[in-house]
Design a protein around this nucleic acid. Structure first.
Lengths: 142, 142
DNA sequence: TTGTAAGCGATAAAAGTTATCGTTTGATAA
DNA sequence: TTATCAAACGATAACTTTTATCGCTTACAA
């Protein structure tokens, strides 16, 4: 990932046509120091230490901006309501980044091979769930 | 996946110590016929045709039951609040099915190899996101 | 059959996110 | 530098999704 210093944060804002506000910069700097997989609330709690008057709405709005401009990333494409599936065959998912449609793809068609059942740190594997993120055929035409 | 007929639905209920209620059975039968990745609301809409008095709460409660007892499956482990990550290195995730903790794992450590950029149906691949579902070290001890 | 615990429906409440709106601020140009 | 104006902000209402509560009903075993 590109890491922006204070100076090039402003350049980043110019490239994306957004204003380099105080809140935006503090939020950006704060998030850069956070490891793991924080929720917006956790980011909010942390950023309030540096900018106590910041609003939760601002945190949400700017997290969206940062994710859209590719600076940070969401852990999962699957938000909104829970989805259940009845397909019991071993399969994975293709998720369209435009329309969010989910399609199944069999393990063989995917050509997936990772089959370890222990991973570093002593993690005991139950199963692998692969999401292929991309653009579905109909969104490519549109 | 095991497919239960009407008769063995009752057996399944007995095995799991739950009552074989009318609503539960209609819900089960209805879901079995649904393909794709429906949300609870979509399941509710469908099941109301057969059991018009059913409550949305009942749909939620029983979807949980079916998922817990392994009959159906959730599409994603990542529910609750959105999670953002700042780690820009190519990596995937280990998700603990007990405590829901997410840990990063590098592509090399995972031994992941699928690298196609076109998939059946004309799906154009942007990236692969692998969730390894399992039990983390601390949950194995507990 | 009947007693009891589990399950149901209705709905309130909680959790998470987005929209609204009046005020403030940053960027541009005079 | 200052004036202008769109963009962004904070506060909070509204919305979406899910869970909890509670009085009534039903399944099931005795």
């Amino acid at each position: 990932m590109l890491v922006y210093g204070t100076k090039s944060f402003r350049e980043h804002c110019r490239e994306h046509g957004i204003a380099a506000t105080h809140q935006r910069q503090v939020l950006y700097e704060t998030m850069k120091t956070m490891h793991g997989h924080p929720s917006p609330e956790e980011v909010y709690a942390r950023v309030k230490k540096k900018a106590p008057a910041i609003s939760l709405a601002t945190v949400y709005k700017n997290i969206h901006l940062f994710v859209e401009s590719g600076v940070f990333r969401k852990v999962s494409m699957h938000h909104g309501p829970v989805r259940v599936e009845m397909n019991g065959e071993p399969h994975h998912h293709m998720v369209c980044s435009k329309c969010r449609k989910i399609s199944d793809i069999g393990e063989k068609e995917l050509g997936f091979v990772a089959k370890r059942n222990r991973l570093p740190g002593g993690f005991l594997v139950e199963r692998y769930a692969v999401d292929v993120i991309g653009v579905c055929a109909s969104c490519q035409m549109a």
